[in-house]
């Protein structure tokens, strides 16, 4: 008991620097440490965020790895903790444990085409990967972002995406499941955009994050194009309570999502996709 103060279950103190509303149910929260210091993380990793007296939730980091002075998370408020988190104000305290988990294969993608496939809030953990790719754009060939949401109102980071479009060296394709008036973009699910996207399947690294069904069908479409399984990376989700491999909740076959994932090479987990309720 004496040692548990230093244990991995005790959150560090941070406070809110800024909260920005993204869509009707998502927001981006910037945190800074109470004591001076930097927060280094790799694109794809997540933190456990604790709201005093309410509880703790795993949230992936959506900020720029090159800017470690603040940690940025983009959160969808779908539960008690995230609903309260949304109401926090600048200066309010918050507990942070992390960063945890595996990262997107930015190094491995060097010299290749990069296809980033995101669904819904799944763009948040992929944004740090976008930042890293853009920061060294010349190291990659074609770079495509395929992004699907429920409706045009659910599109995250619209201003940023607009900026990215302006680079002219990115293929950005957004699609919605349900179009509303004034939407002149694509309608349909993300996987349908994969056949139309220019990339060389033999020289491509793909990164996918979104609902499990969307991952499943995106992988299928990538494989049909000829992208090998070991060049497809997916971010998985399971119940996480401790984030350090002790609680057992996030097991996905032999893997712990919290420490072996959340980012997996598809070829390593392919067989698990065939098992119901795994």
């Amino acid at each position: 008991m004496a040692q548990s103060m230093a244990g991995p279950m005790v959150p560090a103190h941070y406070h809110v620097k800024k909260i920005k509303k993204e869509t009707f149910d998502t927001f981006t929260i910037d945190l800074v440490p109470e004591t001076r210091g930097e927060f280094t993380f790799a694109a794809g990793q997540f933190n456990m965020l604790y709201v005093f007296g309410i509880g703790e939730v795993p949230i992936s980091i959506s900020g720029d790895p090159a800017l470690p002075a603040t940690i940025t998370h983009t959160v969808r408020s779908v539960g008690t903790v995230t609903n309260v988190m949304r109401t926090l104000k600048r200066g309010d305290g918050l507990g942070v444990r992390g960063p945890f988990g595996s990262a997107w294969p930015i190094q491995e993608a060097t010299g290749n085409d990069v296809v980033i496939v995101a669904g819904g809030i799944g763009l948040a953990p992929l944004r740090p990967a976008m930042y890293e790719v853009l920061a060294q754009r010349q190291k990659f060939s074609n770079v495509a972002l395929l992004y699907g949401t429920r409706s045009p109102a659910d599109i995250l980071f619209e201003d940023e995406i607009k900026k990215w479009r302006g680079h002219f060296d990115l293929d950005i394709n957004i699609t919605v499941d349900r179009a509303t008036g004034g939407w002149y973009g694509n309608v349909g699910v993300v996987p349908t955009m994969i056949p139309k996207t220019p990339f060389d399947p033999a020289q491509t690294v793909a990164m996918i994050c979104g609902p499990e069904i969307m991952i499943r069908f995106s992988v299928m479409a990538l494989r049909e194009r000829g992208v090998p399984d070991n060049k497809i990376f997916v971010s998985m989700e399971r119940n996480m309570k401790c984030a350090v491999g002790f609680c057992g909740h996030c097991q996905f076959g032999p893997h712990f999502i919290c420490k072996d994932g959340p980012v997996f090479r598809y070829s390593d987990i392919r067989h698990l996709f065939d098992i119901r309720e795994v």
Binding site: M1, A2, P11, H13, G93
Partner: peptide, 11 residues
């Protein structure tokens, strides 16, 4: 507006 973690009791 924040919180502090308290000292732990005896081992």
């Amino acid at each position: 507006r924040s919180f502090e973690v308290l000292e732990q009791e005896a081992p």
